[in-house]
Simulated scan of single mutants.
Amino acid sequence: MTTIAEPRAPEAPALGLHRDLSNEAYHADTTSLSSSGARKLLPPSTPAKFRYEQDHPQAPTKTFDYGNAAHKLVLGNGPELILVDHDTWNTKAAKAEVAEARARGGIPLKQHEIDMVKAMATAIRQHPLAAALLDPDHGAPEQSGFWLDGPTGIRRRVRFDWLPSIRSGRLIIPDYKTAADASNDAVQKDIAKYGYNQQAAWYEEAAQALDLGGPDTELLLIVQEKAAPYLVNVVGFDFFSREIGRAKNRVAIEKFAECTATGVWPGYGDEPNYLALPGWAENRDKEIYL
C-alpha cells in the first residue's frame, strides 16, 4: 500500500451554494470529494491514482482546451480564449505566445479552432431543447456547492455546468459535453467508460442536499460533436443506470472516508493477484485446447 501525507487546503469553502467561486478555488479544495474524484477512486483506477492526481494536477491538453473553449462560448463563463496566430506552434515565437496565454489563465487557440467553437455555440443555440435548457435568462453557469455526507460526515462537492433558476415544476440540470461522436451508441459507451451515470446520481443528490430541487431532480447530458455540422444529442439516464451510479458513488464515498482517516491510499495491492483469462478468451481456447 502507498501511504501519502494528506494535504489540506488552507481555507476550504464554506458549506452551501457558491455562485461566484472560481474554478481554481473549487478544485483546490482537496478536503472534499467530487463526482470525478469518486469515479477515480474505483476500478479500473485506484485510490493511489486519485491521490496522486489530486497532488499533481494534469497539464492542459488539446482535448481539454477544446472542451473548455466550447464551455466558455456555450455557457458564457470560463477562461479567456486567446488567439495564437501562427500556422505552426513549434517556433520559438509561437511557443512563447502559448506559454504567455497559459500564464494568464487563458486557452491558446489557432484561428480555425476559435471558428470551430464559435460554430459549436451557434449550433447549440439552434437546437430547441438544448437552447431552452441553457437559456441565459433562466439560469447561470459554473455554480459550486459543498455539503456533508450523512453516513460518513465527509465533505462532498459539485460544480454545476449550468444551474437553472427554478420557476415551477421539477429541477432539470443540463451538463454540457463535447465528443467525437454524439450518436446514441457512442454516448452509451461513453456513459459506461466515463461513469456519467455516477455523475448524474451525484449531481441529483447534490441538488437535493443543497435544497435546490426535490427527489424528482434530473440531470440531462447535452452532448455535442466537435466536427461540422456540430450535431447535438440530449441524453437522459434510465432508472437502473442511475441506481448503479448511486451505488458506485456510495462505495467511493466510503473508500474516500477510509483513506482520509487512515492516510493510506492503496494501489493494486501488496500480494499477487491471481487472474483468470477474460471470459471470451477462456471460452475460445478451452474448446480448442482442452
Rank of each mutant, 00 (worst) to 15 (best):
T2D: 11
T2N: 12
A5T: 13
A5W: 03
R8N: 10
E11R: 15
P13N: 08
P13Y: 03
Y26D: 05
A28F: 03
D29A: 07
S35N: 10
S36W: 05
L41Q: 02
L42C: 04
L42S: 06
P44D: 06
S45Q: 12
F50R: 07
Y52C: 04
E53P: 09
Q54K: 13
D55G: 13
Q58N: 09
Q58L: 12
P60Q: 09
Y66K: 09
N68H: 08
N68Y: 07
V74H: 01
G78I: 03
V84A: 04
D85T: 08
N90M: 09
K92F: 07
A96L: 10
V98K: 08
A99V: 04
L109Q: 00
M120E: 05
A121R: 02
I124F: 00
Q126C: 10
L129W: 01
A130S: 06
A131L: 04
A132T: 12
A132C: 07
L134N: 05
G139R: 02
G139P: 06
P141E: 08
Q143R: 12
Q143K: 12
F146C: 03
F146T: 00
D149C: 07
G150E: 15
G150I: 07
G153R: 05
I154M: 11
R156N: 05
V158T: 08
R159D: 06
D161E: 09
P164R: 08
R167Q: 15
R170D: 13
L171H: 02
Y176E: 04
K177L: 05
N184K: 15
A186R: 03
D190G: 09
A192G: 10
Y194K: 11
Y194N: 14
Y196R: 08
Q198H: 09
Q199P: 00
A201K: 01
A209H: 03
G213T: 01
G213Q: 03
D216E: 14
D216G: 06
L220E: 04
L231N: 12
V232G: 04
N233V: 07
V235T: 15
G236H: 07
D238Y: 06
D238G: 10
R242I: 03
R242L: 12
E243Y: 02
G245N: 03
R246S: 10
N249S: 12
N249V: 03
V251C: 08
I253K: 00
T262G: 07
V264F: 01
P266S: 02
G267F: 02
G267K: 03
G279C: 03
E282A: 14
N283V: 09
E287M: 11
E287D: 11
I288A: 13
